[in-house]
């Protein structure tokens, strides 16, 4: 299978070049280009309708772009895969609205997320191994839910659901995490705890975090990309982006 040539040299986890998507004439993405390096954490900001969710849909195989290149690890053309295949390649996605399986327990949600065993037959014959148990214990400790193991996910608070979903993402052991507004609906304390968690995760994963909360972005201490009308408006450190006149005009306000 042929892979479109890249326009830059350095290796990347995610490489997007000239990606456009339109819905009934509305250009949700307009020749979007972006590159995420291995192990990088990137924050994405931008006004509503800037194309943040559409971008994630394109990366995760939910939406087919009209044109453009989307590469994962410089070798997989993501536009040829569907959601399940993209997930199994090693890209995890967290939705804006927490989407955990409410009628299963915390434990069952996490167990289901564990890497491997995706076929019907494997699922029917599944038994938890000691190794998987350790992995689960580790995730439970990380998201601070060891005591809530048997709670039905539907009975968790909003913030806890967000954390559980992040835990499920980790269970997939993805290389790249796409996270849509994790701090939405969280208390200030939870928001800061989440930022700390992400910094820990960034040691082993690449992360792309879409967020509106500027305090949260500041706490992440990472590069920031500003999207506007489906393409990149500015990119750089939070301070440089904040000082950018175009960004102030369309997003931050004067």
């Amino acid at each position: 299978m042929s892979i479109a040539p890249k326009h830059i040299e350095q290796p990347s986890v995610l490489y997007m070049d000239g990606v456009s998507v339109s819905f009934d004439g509305f250009k949700a993405l307009n020749s979007l280009s972006m590159c995420i390096e291995p192990g990088e954490m990137r924050a994405i900001i931008g006004p509503n309708g800037a194309g943040k969710t559409t971008m994630m849909d394109v990366i995760t195989g939910k939406t087919q772009p009209d044109c453009g290149t989307v590469l994962f690890n410089d070798q997989h053309d993501l536009t040829r895969y569907d959601e399940a295949a993209v997930a199994n390649l090693g890209i995890g996605r967290k939705f804006q609205k927490p989407s955990v399986i409410e009628s299963l327990t915390v434990f069952e949600n996490l167990e289901m997320s564990l890497r491997g065993g995706r076929s019907v037959w494997q699922a029917l014959r599944h038994r938890l191994t000691a190794e998987q148990q350790d992995k689960l214990d580790h995730i439970l400790a990380l998201i601070d839910m060891t005591a809530r193991l048997d709670t039905f996910a539907g009975n968790l608070s909003h913030g806890q659901k967000q954390w559980l979903e992040i835990g499920m993402l980790l269970g997939q052991q993805p290389q790249l995490l796409l996270i849509d507004e994790p701090a939405a609906g969280m208390t200030d304390e939870e928001t800061m705890k989440t930022a700390e968690l992400f910094k820990t995760l960034a040691q082993h994963h690449s992360l792309m975090v879409v967020e509106h909360d500027m305090d949260f972005i500041a706490a992440l201490e990472c590069r920031v990309t500003v999207l506007h009308e489906g393409s990149v408006l500015a990119e750089g450190s939070l301070a440089s982006v904040k000082a950018n006149d175009k960004v102030i005009d369309v997003y931050l306000g004067r």
Binding site: T60, D82, E83, A84, A87, N88, G92, R93, F95, S99, V100, I101, E102, S103, L104, E108, E111, M112, S113, G117, R118, S119, V120, A123, L124, R125, H126, M168, Q172
Partner: peptide, 23 residues
């Protein structure tokens, strides 16, 4: 079985099941 829990996941949140990598 775990298959049953995947079925419940599909019932409650089909897209979550897909993005977890289940066909």
């Amino acid at each position: 079985s775990k298959l049953g829990r995947v079925l419940v996941a599909i019932r409650d949140s089909e897209s979550r099941a897909r993005f977890l990598g289940y066909r």
